Amino acid sequence: MKILTLLFTFAFTAFTMIPEVATVNTSESSITWTAKKVTGQHHGKVPITTATLDYQNGKILGGSFEMDMTSLTVEDITDPGMNKKLTDHLKSDDFFSVANHGKSTFTITNAKTSNGKDYQLTGDLTIKNITKPVTFPATVAVNGGIITATGKLTFDRTDYDIKFRSGSYFENLADKMIYDDVELDVKIIASE
């Protein structure tokens, strides 16, 4: 009887320590990118193909998402020809090389919070098969069993071998320079 009780206690303890994986709604979740240059900026979307959210006792413990770089869009240019030109350029080897690197990923390695709402997330961002750690603030709200996690992840594109018109690598670009930082506004919608 003692062995049975001990096994039950161990099994129950082990079970309660396993993070609950919340169901992520990828069609409701979104990533909006923003890139800036001397003369302005552009923005668009990158679809989330898969995502997980490890959520237990009202706190995020981990998670990941995968971005479909082949479906990257430009949202601020209304002229179809100009839109296609920029979209194709972003998918080219000058930028994300999507023919060879169709997916980019982010995986949480550490989630710090004091209140279960405001987080400092650290994780591995992989673009073009290059992985670098990034840290960014995020906010989590829960309403009626729906978890909404939002954050602004900023990365230096040159860390991922994206150097086109970077002032860090090329001189005399003047108003042709594109800034190195790229912002990703991430919104993950999941259900408990």
Rank of each mutant, 00 (worst) to 15 (best):
G123F: 07
N129Q: 10
T131W: 00
L153F: 05
G123C: 05
E171D: 15
G123D: 13
D159R: 11
K132D: 14
S168H: 12
F136E: 07
Y179N: 07
G167N: 08
A138F: 02
V182K: 03
D175I: 06
D181I: 11
F155S: 03
N172E: 15
G167T: 05
I162F: 11
A141R: 04
G116Y: 07
K187Y: 03
D156K: 14
N143C: 02
I162L: 10
K117G: 06
R157G: 08
N129T: 13
T131D: 04
S168N: 15
G167Q: 06
G116E: 07
T150Q: 08
I127M: 04
N172K: 15
Q120S: 13
L153W: 04
M177K: 10
T148W: 15
N129E: 14
V140P: 00
R157P: 10
N143Q: 12
K176R: 11
N143W: 06
E171L: 12
I146K: 13
T122R: 09
G116W: 05
I147R: 00
Y160G: 05
A149G: 08
Q120G: 09
G151E: 01
T131A: 12
K128T: 03
T158N: 10
V182S: 02
V186G: 01
Y169L: 14
F170L: 00
Y169I: 09
L153G: 11
V186F: 05
